[in-house]
Design a protein around this nucleic acid. Structure first.
Lengths: 230, 230
DNA sequence: ATTCTGTATTTTGAATACAATATGCACGAT
DNA sequence: ATCGTGCATATTGTATTCAAAATACAGAAT
């Protein structure tokens, strides 16, 4: 079989060269939020560097960035640890996240495309199926995807970036916490209301629902976390 | 004359060792916001490093942090430039700042100490004197101090950090913009209302006033900036 | 046995060295 | 003169080296 002549357009695509720095930041971010390290646990530069097959120099640059975001704690001459978050710290971050998501909701209700809203409706359907199936980790990801889609829908890059950086700090806590079944069902219902407000393009309503939703999430975290400490 | 015996308490203070990293980040931040470089202008690593008398390694780590905050733009293999901010970008950042300061105001009205409020009243008085004297750069600093005091008064570290990082991006624009006399007077009046709401501990009112104040600031920036482009 | 002290080892911080990439410039062709 | 090409230079990216500090540990003193 002979290959078809390549599409002339695709021959002139600018070639994509991801920088090592960006790759490291991205990979480390998910490693720290979803990896095995517990809050307060030591991070070894040397070991990480050789694991990624890079030298300490670019690794350190990436770690400094993540530390400045609050995901890691950098202590001079004592290296890097996974950030620990107290109950008060968690509440503080959530308070800011509420303000941010509320703003995002108001903007998104006003300027999202119908296609974008339809995409969220699809995610919602998938999430409900995952809830029925009891697949909590799939639910977790789809849930995140919905919130990110609303953020994106706000069209405000500064807002998106600020939210991502801040939510990174509590993502691990959200990841670790196990919801009660009642909280889970409640969250699903809140999401239905959120979708309804978005569909109706009720900006104020959506903003308030998102804030209330986070409030509920915080309460549920505060119930489960203090014991598990991870 | 013989020196008095030192206070035994002061002999056991832990000694303060600021890390090079932190010093660099701090110094660079004010250099970039208040220094001579224009938006879009190239930053030379080598030159900066020798100016500060350090090697490129710690300097780069600091620059990466500032770039992740949005104060600088890092282009792979092409170095660092002062971030350029478009009119839309400015509006986006202000939108987020409004949400943040509004939250800060609501919290501060509820939990600031009387002494803290009195300190802000002092700042207000000083600022009005600077306004009368026409000393715009002193006014600028006192104005910043008031906003920072309210942020601090919120008692929410996550909020304070998020706000500082974000406001860094537009600080330069605010620094450069020259206000019209009418806008200046208007700003002073808004600040009087802000102080009044704080004194009355009117949380909702203070939140709204702070948002409105920023809105006004944004409008005035948008009028003066597009021409000066610096 | 426990605590202290001194030393070896590990880890972090910063500078240097080297490699890769981009920029600036001179020269030649049109 | 203008545009293009190739080379010299400068700048950035990463690795390596060296220095400083912290940690771990062994042995001595109580």
């Amino acid at each position: 079989m002979i290959a078809a002549p390549a599409d002339p357009m695709t021959l002139l695509q600018p070639i994509h060269r991801p920088s090592l720095h960006d790759q490291l930041v991205e990979q480390l971010r998910s490693y720290f939020t979803e990896g095995p390290l517990k809050p307060g646990e030591k991070v070894n530069e040397q070991a990480l560097a050789s694991a990624y097959g890079v030298s300490r120099t670019p690794l350190r640059e990436a770690l400094k960035v993540l530390a400045s975001e609050g995901l890691l704690t950098w202590t001079p001459n004592r290296g890097v640890r996974m950030a620990e978050i107290s109950a008060e710290g968690l509440a503080e971050v959530f308070e800011v996240l509420m303000a941010l998501e509320s703003l995002a909701g108001r903007k998104a209700a006003a300027r999202m495309t119908e296609a974008g809203i339809a995409a969220i409706a699809d995610l919602q359907a998938r999430m409900e199926a995952e809830y029925e199936a009891g697949d909590i980790s799939a639910y977790f990801r789809t849930n995140q995807a919905i919130h990110e889609a609303i953020l994106q829908g706000s069209g405000n890059e500064a807002l998106i970036g600020t939210h991502r950086s801040l939510s990174g700090r509590v993502r691990r806590a959200r990841f670790m916490a196990n919801m009660s079944r009642t909280r889970w069902q409640h969250a699903i219902e809140e999401h239905r209301e959120i979708l309804a407000a978005l569909t109706a393009r009720d900006a104020e309503g959506l903003g308030q629902l998102l804030a209330a939703h986070l409030e509920g999430k915080l309460r549920s975290l505060q119930e489960t976390l203090p014991s598990s400490r991870a």
